[in-house]
Structure formats: C-alpha cells, structure tokens
Amino acid sequence: MKSLAHLVQMANQIAAFHAALPDHTEAVNGVAAHLRRFWEPRMRATLLDHLDDPACAALHPLVREAIDTHADDLRPAPR
C-alpha cells in the first residue's frame, strides 16, 4: 500500500522535528497536535487503521506514543 508507506514517512518526519524537544511529553503532544491539525481525516484513519501493517513497523516511537496517547482525538468522527 503505497500511500500507507508515504504516510509513515510523513509521520516520521513530523516526529523527527519534535524529537529535538527536551520535554518528552511536549514532543509527544506536539506530534499528535500536528497530525490532528494538519492531516485530513482519511489520512489519520488510514494510519490508525493499519498500525499492525508491516509498513507501520517503521513508525517513529514518538508517532506510536502520540497515537497511543491521543487515539480518541486523532480518530476522525464518522461521516
């Protein structure tokens, strides 16, 4: 699934920026907030729905943690 790999790459880039923050909680929240504020629901849903896909094995730990911590907020409302 090409777009999932692309989403993983993009999410990891977001994490790489926030990884510089010394406050770990701030970094996790920063990643989650960025996904929530800038990713269209289809993109978030695709990532959240395929966390067990092999492509997601490459997810940055900060992204994993952001999703774990903020899953409810990141999960798009049904349309």
Binding site: K2, S3, H6, R37, F38, W39, E40, P41, R42, M43, P76, A77
Partner: peptide, 16 residues
C-alpha cells in the same frame, strides 16, 4: 470542523 486535503494528499487520495 476537519482539515481538508493538501495538493499532494489529493493526488494520493485520487490514486486510492
């Protein structure tokens, strides 16, 4: 109340 697709996201969504 949700952000929309950016241009490159539109391309990916079109191909999906």
């Amino acid at each position: 109340p949700e952000p929309g697709l950016r241009i490159p996201n539109m391309f990916d969504a079109a191909l999906e």
